[in-house]
Simulated scan of single mutants.
Amino acid sequence: MAELCKNIRELKSILYGNSESEPVSEACAQLTQEFFRENTLRLLITCLPKLNLEARKDATQVVANLQRQQVHSRLIASDYLEANLDLMDILIAGYENTDMALHYGAMLRECIRHQTVARYVLESEHMKKFYDYIQLPNFDIAADAAATFKELLTRHKSTVAEFLSKNYDWFFAEYNSKLLESTNYITRRQAIKVSRDANDLTDKLANMGSTELKISLHGVRMFLYSLLGDILLDRSNSAVMTRYVSSRDNLRILMNLLR
Rank of each mutant, 00 (worst) to 15 (best):
M1G: 14
A2W: 06
E3A: 11
C5A: 15
R9W: 13
R9I: 07
E10R: 15
L11R: 12
G17P: 09
N18C: 11
S21Y: 13
E22P: 03
E22R: 08
V24S: 02
S25K: 15
A27H: 15
Q30G: 08
Q30S: 14
Q33R: 15
Q33G: 10
F35E: 02
F36W: 09
F36G: 02
R37L: 15
E38A: 13
E38Q: 14
E38I: 13
N39T: 05
N39R: 09
L41Q: 01
L41G: 01
L44F: 13
L44W: 07
L48Y: 10
P49N: 10
L51C: 10
L53I: 14
E54L: 12
D58F: 07
A59C: 11
A64H: 13
A64G: 10
N65Q: 12
L66N: 00
L66H: 02
R68C: 08
Q69V: 14
Q69F: 11
Q69R: 10
Q69M: 13
Q69E: 14
S73V: 12
A77P: 01
S78N: 11
D79N: 14
D79Y: 12
Y80I: 11
L81Q: 08
E82W: 11
E82F: 11
N84D: 10
N84F: 12
D86P: 07
D86Q: 07
I92D: 02
Y95I: 04
N97G: 02
T98C: 04
H103I: 06
Y104C: 09
Y104T: 07
G105A: 07
G105K: 02
M107L: 09
M107H: 00
L108T: 02
C111R: 03
I112G: 01
Q115M: 14
V117E: 01
L122M: 04
S124R: 06
S124L: 08
M127W: 09
Y131R: 12
Y131E: 10
P137W: 04
F139V: 15
I141T: 04
D144G: 05
D144K: 04
A145Y: 02
A145M: 07
A145T: 04
A147N: 14
L153T: 06
T154W: 01
T159Y: 08
V160F: 03
A161M: 06
L164A: 00
Y168V: 05
F172K: 00
N184Q: 14
T187F: 08
T187L: 03
Q190F: 13
Q190A: 09
K193C: 05
S195T: 12
D197A: 11
A198H: 02
N199C: 05
D200Y: 12
D203W: 02
D203F: 11
D203G: 08
D203T: 12
L205A: 03
A206Y: 10
A206N: 09
M208C: 09
G209H: 03
G209E: 04
S210M: 03
L213P: 02
L217H: 10
L217D: 01
V220R: 00
V220W: 00
R221S: 07
F223D: 00
F223Q: 00
G229T: 07
L233H: 05
A239G: 10
A239D: 14
V240K: 03
M241S: 04
M241K: 01
N250G: 04
L251H: 03
M255H: 13
N256H: 15
N256L: 12
L258P: 12
